[in-house]
Amino acid sequence: MADLYSTLGLKRGASEADIKKAYRKLAKELHPDRNKDNAEASSRFSEVTHAYDLLSDADKRAQYDRGEIDEQGNPRAPFGYSPGAGRGGFGGPRGEGVHFEFGEGGDFGDIFSDLFNGGQRRRGSPFGQRPQRRGADVAYRLQVLFEEAAALKPQRVTLSNGKTIDLKLPPGIESGRQMRLSGQGEVGPGGNGDALVTIEIAPHRFFKRDGDDVRLDLPVRLDEVVLGAKVKVPTVEGAVMLTVPAGSTSGRTLRLKERGFHRATGGRGDQLVTLMVDVPGGDAELESFVKQWESERSRNPRASLGV
């Protein structure tokens, strides 16, 4: 796997904000919903998400920058180690590879101190021994209800070992986002693997997502748009009252502020309510009224279209 920074199009030393910005840009371009028949884009999306998950974890990023773990998050072998080496433990046949010379007053402790970053040996990698591998990661797919994703309600997840945890959804959550639960994978001699949870937001029967906004087509009566009214409107967190201005037309969109999805950058999207005038069929009284409504029958609402 390529260097995690280059996977996100960044250089080492990038700030947390740069990492988040690069991930959001690439995730939008490569998201499976936009590339349903593009296997390469799907693969790149997984790589980008994995890189972001590791680099956004401060502890793991520090380990990666120090060379203690690889691009998969697994511990690296000690400096100069080569599998199959002789007892010397450093690449090549016995007696070859790294060679140390000690002058008068030389101290083994100093050599080992330099090699292991000030005397702190890498966890699970004693000098001259093969590092113990951590347990395997375990993948999960979690479907989240539309309203709960918008409101960031915690999700209860049951792991393969029977353990149940409450997963906190992050702002900006989208379908395809992978969340890493450190140490919740399979057990291994070098430590536990991680649980990788891919989020899938379930579609809703009348709400539609538009970026961080939520859209809703709202049926209204003719008298409600002509005379104006207060009507009850469903939102992702329960019904609220909406004022329909008098003289509104079918297709007019009204805004309920901060009733949408939570943004990754802070704040929240809105709910956009589009009025859809619902005219009942077979209503004799309405038909009689319209036949006598001379001013309306003589008006051409399509004049602006040139017809």
Score class of each variant (00 low, 15 high):
159 L>Q: 03
151 A>N: 11
143 Q>L: 00
142 L>I: 03
127 F>M: 12
140 Y>H: 10
138 V>Q: 13
128 G>N: 10
154 P>D: 02
154 P>M: 10
134 R>H: 13
109 G>S: 11
155 Q>W: 01
137 D>Y: 02
135 G>D: 04
154 P>V: 01
120 Q>M: 08
138 V>E: 09
135 G>L: 05
146 F>H: 06
111 I>N: 01
128 G>D: 05
140 Y>F: 01
124 G>V: 07
107 D>T: 01
113 S>H: 11
123 R>N: 14
117 N>T: 07
161 N>K: 05
156 R>E: 15
129 Q>I: 08
124 G>A: 07
140 Y>I: 04
109 G>W: 05
119 G>R: 10
126 P>H: 01
117 N>W: 15
106 G>P: 08
151 A>I: 01
156 R>Y: 06
131 P>H: 15
163 K>M: 04
114 D>E: 11
133 R>V: 11
155 Q>P: 01
133 R>L: 00
163 K>C: 02
153 K>Y: 00
110 D>N: 15
116 F>C: 05
108 F>V: 14
143 Q>K: 12
141 R>T: 13
106 G>H: 06
159 L>E: 03
123 R>G: 12
140 Y>D: 02
136 A>Q: 12
117 N>M: 07
124 G>P: 04
120 Q>N: 05
141 R>A: 11
144 V>M: 09
130 R>W: 08
162 G>Y: 08
142 L>T: 03
111 I>Y: 13
106 G>M: 03
140 Y>N: 03
161 N>I: 04
148 E>L: 11
144 V>R: 07
126 P>Q: 03
143 Q>H: 01
152 L>Q: 11
109 G>Y: 07
107 D>C: 13
138 V>H: 03
137 D>K: 09
128 G>I: 00
153 K>L: 10
111 I>Q: 04
154 P>G: 02
116 F>N: 15
142 L>E: 02
143 Q>R: 06
127 F>A: 03
159 L>F: 04
156 R>P: 00
107 D>I: 14
119 G>Q: 01
139 A>N: 10
116 F>M: 12
162 G>W: 12
128 G>E: 04
127 F>R: 06
135 G>T: 10
107 D>A: 14
147 E>N: 08
148 E>Q: 04
141 R>S: 12
116 F>G: 04
124 G>M: 05
147 E>I: 06
111 I>A: 02
129 Q>F: 14
153 K>N: 05
105 G>S: 03
157 V>Q: 08
163 K>N: 10
118 G>Q: 14
151 A>R: 13
130 R>K: 14
143 Q>N: 15
150 A>P: 00
146 F>G: 05
105 G>F: 01
148 E>H: 11
155 Q>D: 06
150 A>Y: 04
154 P>N: 03
143 Q>E: 13
106 G>W: 03
163 K>S: 11
141 R>E: 14
125 S>F: 04
159 L>D: 09
146 F>A: 05
114 D>L: 13
122 R>C: 00
128 G>S: 12
142 L>Y: 00
148 E>F: 06
110 D>C: 10
116 F>Q: 11
105 G>Y: 03
119 G>C: 09
120 Q>F: 08
138 V>L: 14
145 L>R: 13
149 A>C: 09
150 A>K: 02
123 R>W: 15
107 D>E: 09
